[in-house]
Nucleic acid binder design. Structure first.
Length: 717
DNA sequence: GCAAGGTC
C-alpha cells in the first residue's frame, strides 16, 4: 500500500513531507523533480509536486479561424512556449503513480488548486479523479498539515473542480475567439498580420485606461484663484491660505483681497492636535508592488520577478499572496536575531528584541494559501544580491521591522488668522515622535512644516495678501502600479496575473509610457470596436457573471456543461455578427493615424449605438438640473473637482443617484440605494467617496457610495 | 497564436 500525495508546488511538497514524516523524509528525484518518501503509522507515503497548472486548454484542430469551441486538456508545454520545465513534472507524477494505489490531492484549497489536482490525476497519473482523497488545510504548519492528514476528505471537491474547469473553458472561449476576430478584422482591412487580443481581464483593464484617456483629452481647464497671505513672525515668513481654497470668480477674489488688506489681522484661533500614525500593514503582493513602484520606480512585473528571486534564495517568504497578516506561529525573535547581524538593521532589531511582547500590526486582507510577505531570517551573503534585489529586500525587511514598532506621533497645527472678517489658515505639521518612521522613514515621507507658537488674539504682521491664478488640471494618467490597484479594486485578474496582463497590453501596442500610461490610437479603436459589438468583453460584469456561475456550480445549483453550452450559444451569435461586419470593424481599427485625439462624441459616433443612449441620458440629467430640484441635498464634496455632491433623480426612471453639482463639466456620479432616507455624514471613504447614512424603517446604517468599496457589506451591517 | 490562471 503506497499513498501518493500531490502538492501544488515543490516547496509545499517539501513542507508536507516534513510535517507528516516520522523522522526525516527521504528526498529523491526523477529528472530534476524532487519528491519525498517516508512512512507514517506504518503506511508508505510519497509526496510529489505539480508546478501550478500542468495541463492547459488547446484546440483539437490547428485551424486559425473562428469560432472555435472544440478544445481539450493538453500538457502545458504543448500549448505554450517556454513551459518545457513542466514536462519533467508530468513525467515524475506518471512514474510515481504506477507505484501508488492510493491518491491524495493536497493542492491549495481553491478552484484553481482543485483543477491542478484534478488534471494531474486524470492526465498525468492516469487515474480516475473520483478515486482520490483530499487533504484540506489553510496553513502550511506541521499542526495544520497533520490535522488535514488525519481528517482526509473522502473525495476531491468536484463542485470546485467543475467550477474551475468552467472558468478555464469560458475564458478560453471568450478570449481566444474574440482575439481571433479582432486579428482577422484588421487583417482583412489592411492586409497586415498583426496580433490583437482581448479577454475577460484585458478588456475591462484597457477600457478604464481608455476612459481616463478620454477624460484627459476632453478636459477643459477652468481658471480659479487662490488667495494667500504672507506673514512674518520672529523674522521668518509663513504663508496662510484663504479658508475657501478655490475661488471661481476673479472679481470675488479681488474683492476679498482688497477687504482683507485693510486689516487688522490677528490670530483668531489656534488648534493643535496630536495624531498617532500606526505602522503600515504587512506586504501582500499588490501593496509591495505599489510601494516598490513609488520607492524605486519598479514596474509591478519587475517587482514580482525580484520577489520571486528573493523567495527562491530563501530570503523572503512566498510573494504571490494577498494576505496582510503574518503567520501566528512565526518565530519573530529568531528572525530579529538574524536580522540584527546586518549592521543596517542592528539598532532596530535590538530595540525590538528588548520588548517583552512582539505584536505586529496586521491588515484586513487574508489569503488562505499564504501569509503576508516577510523576511525569513536567512541573510544574503555579501555581494549575493543585485542592486535591485537588495533594494527590494531592504524594503521588505524595513517594513517587517516597522510592524512591531511604536506608532509615530504627529502634531497638526492650524492657526486661523482673521483680517477684517476674512479668515486665512496657516497649517503646520511635524513629527514629534518618530516611532516606526525610524526604520521605515526612508520609504514614507510626511510633511514637516514647523510653525512657531501663536497665541489667540495676538496681532499678525502681514507682509502681503495676493491672489494667484490657477487652472484646474486634468485627471492624472495611470501609472503601472495604479493600474494594478484599480484591477484589484475591480476584482479582475489575480495577484499573480495582473502584472502580466498589463504587459500584454503594452506588447499589443494598446498602451505606451513607462510611468504615465497613455492609450495609443490602436488601443482606443479596439475598445470602440468591442464596445459597439461585444460590450460584455470590456465590462467587469463579465467577471461578475462568471463568478456567479462558478458559485452556482460549486453549490451544485448549476451544471458545468450547461453553463459552458450557454456561453457558447451566446458567443456563436456575437461572433457571427462580428464576422458579418468584419471588414468595417477592421477599417475602424485601422484609423490610427492623426493625433489620436478625438472627443467622446466623435468616438461615440464611430461606435454607433452608444451615442443614442448616452445623449438621451445626458438630456435627462440636464433637464433634471434645469428643472431645479428644490435645494438638492448635499452629501459631500466631489473628490474630482471640489463641487458639491448632491442627490439627483433620473427624469425618465425616477431613480435617485448622487452627482456632482458641476455637471456637465464634471461627470462624477455614484449610484444610490433607492430605499430609505439619505442623511449626510461628512465622512468620506474610497478616494473621497462620500459616506451617507441610510435610515429605513426600524434601522439605519452608514454606507460608502463607492460600489467597489471593500467595506461595503460590512458597512451595511 | 489568440485567455487567464497556476508556478519556475
Amino acid at each position: 500500500m503506497v499513498t501518493l500525495i500531490i502538492a501544488e508546488k515543490p516547496n509545499v511538497a517539501r513542507k508536507i513531507a516534513y510535517a507528516l514524516a516520522e523522522g526525516r523524509p527521504v528526498r529523491k528525484t526523477i529528472g530534476k523533480v524532487p519528491y519525498y518518501e517516508f512512512t507514517r503509522d506504518g503506511k508508505r507515503i510519497i509526496v510529489a509536486p505539480a508546478v501550478g497548472h500542468l495541463f492547459s486548454l488547446a484546440p483539437k484542430t490547428k485551424t486559425y479561424g473562428y469560432p472555435v469551441f472544440d478544445i481539450e486538456w493538453v500538457p502545458v508545454y504543448v500549448a505554450e512556449k517556454g513551459k518545457s520545465y513542466a514536462k519533467d513534472y508530468i513525467k515524475a507524477l506518471a512514474t510515481l503513480a504506477k507505484r501508488a494505489d492510493e491518491f491524495v490531492v493536497a493542492c491549495d484549497y481553491d478552484t484553481e488548486g482543485e483543477v491542478i489536482g484534478y488534471t494531474a490525476l486524470k492526465y498525468a497519473c492516469g487515474v480516475d479523479p473520483s478515486k482520490a482523497k483530499r487533504m484540506k488545510f489553510s496553513a502550511l504548519t506541521k499542526k495544520d498539515l497533520l490535522k488535514a492528514w488525519y481528517n482526509l476528505e473522502s473525495t476531491i471537491n468536484f463542485g470546485m473542480a467543475d467550477a474551475g474547469i468552467a472558468r478555464h473553458v469560458l475564458d478560453w472561449y471568450w478570449g481566444v475567439n474574440l482575439s481571433r476576430a479582432l486579428t482577422s478584422a484588421i487583417k482583412r482591412a489592411s492586409g497586415k498580420w498583426m496580433v490583437l487580443s482581448t479577454g475577460r481581464v484585458q478588456g475591462p483593464t484597457l477600457k478604464f485606461l481608455v476612459d481616463r484617456e478620454k477624460e484627459i483629452q476632453n478636459f477643459k481647464p477652468t481658471p480659479y484663484w487662490v488667495i494667500k497671505m504672507v506673514l512674518e513672525k520672529n523674522g521668518q515668513q509663513y504663508t496662510a491660505v484663504y479658508e475657501k481654497e478655490r475661488i471661481l470668480d476673479e472679481n470675488e477674489a479681488k474683492r476679498i483681497v482688497e477687504e482683507a488688506k485693510k486689516g487688522p489681522a490677528f490670530v483668531e484661533k489656534v488648534d493643535v492636535k496630536q495624531q498617532n500614525r500606526h505602522p503600515p500593514v504587512p506586504f501582500d503582493l499588490g501593496t509591495l508592488q505599489r510601494e516598490a513602484y513609488s520607492a524605486f520606480g519598479y514596474s509591478p512585473k519587475k517587482t514580482l520577478e525580484l520577489a520571486q528571486k528573493l523567495y527562491e534564495r530563501g530570503l523572503t517568504s512566498y510573494p504571490r499572496t494577498s494576505s496582510q497578516k503574518l503567520p501566528k506561529n512565526l518565530n519573530f525573535r529568531s528572525i530579529l536575531q538574524n536580522l540584527a547581524k546586518l549592521p543596517e538593521y542592528k539598532p532596530f532589531a535590538h530595540e525590538l528584541l528588548g520588548k517583552e511582547r512582539l505584536k505586529p500590526v496586521e491588515g484586513k486582507k487574508d489569503d488562505p494559501a499564504h501569509p503576508a510577505i516577510y523576511p525569513t531570517g536567512e541573510l544574503p551573503k555579501p555581494g549575493e544580491l543585485t542592486k535591485d534585489e537588495a533594494n527590494l529586500y531592504d524594503l521588505i525587511v524595513r517594513r517587517f521591522l516597522a510592524l512591531f514598532m511604536e506608532p509615530a506621533v504627529r502634531e497638526i497645527m492650524k492657526v486661523i488668522i482673521n483680517s477684517n472678517g476674512h479668515r486665512f489658515i496657516l497649517s503646520g505639521a511635524r513629527t514629534i515622535k518618530e516611532g516606526w518612521l525610524k526604520v521605515y522613514g526612508k520609504y514614507v515621507k510626511f510633511d514637516e512644516a514647523i510653525l512657531p507658537a501663536f497665541k489667540e488674539g495676538e496681532p499678525v504682521k502681514v507682509l502681503q495678501i495676493k491672489r494667484e491664478k490657477k487652472k484646474t488640471k486634468p485627471p492624472a494618467r495611470y501609472s503601472p502600479a495604479a493600474v494594478i490597484k484599480r484591477m484589484e479594486d475591480l476584482g479582475i485578474g489575480t495577484k499573480a496575473t495582473r502584472a502580466q496582463i498589463l504587459e500584454t497590453l503594452y506588447s499589443r501596442g494598446y498602451i505606451e509610457g513607462k510611468k504615465k500610461i497613455k492609450v495609443t490610437p490602436l488601443g482606443m479603436r479596439v475598445v470602440e470596436a468591442l464596445e459597439r459589438n461585444v460590450p460584455d468583453i470590456v465590462s467587469v460584469e463579465l467577471t461578475r457573471a462568471f463568478e456567479e456561475k462558478m458559485e452556482e456550480i460549486m453549490a451544485g445549483k448549476a451544471d458545468k456543461d450547461r453553463v459552458i453550452e450557454e456561453s457558447k450559444e451566446q458567443l456563436i451569435k456575437i461572433l457571427q455578427q462580428f464576422k458579418e461586419k468584419e471588414l468595417d470593424i477592421g477599417k475602424v481599427l485601422m484609423e490610427t493615424t492623426g493625433t489620436g485625439v478625438t472627443t467622446s462624441k466623435e468616438n461615440a459616433k464611430r461606435a454607433g449605438t452608444v451615442k443614442e443612449l448616452s445623449e438621451t441620458e445626458e438630456k435627462d440629467v440636464k433637464k433634471t438640473i434645469e428643472k431645479g430640484e428644490k435645494t438638492p441635498l448635499v452629501v459631500g464634496k466631489c473628490p474630482k473637482c471640489g463641487g458639491d455632491l448632491v442627490v439627483r433623480y433620473n427624469r425618465k426612471t425616477g431613480k435617485r443617484f448622487v452627482g456632482c453639482s458641476n455637471w456637465p463639466k464634471c461627470n462624477v456620479t455614484y449610484p444610490l440605494l433607492q430605499r430609505g432616507r439619505i442623511i449626510p455624514t461628512n465622512k468620506t471613504c474610497c478616494d473621497g467617496a462620500p459616506v451617507v447614512k441610510i435610515r429605513e424603517k426600524g434601522r439605519e446604517y452608514e454606507i460608502c457610495l463607492d460600489m467597489n468599496c471593500k467595506d461595503w457589506k460590512k458597512g451595511k451591517k
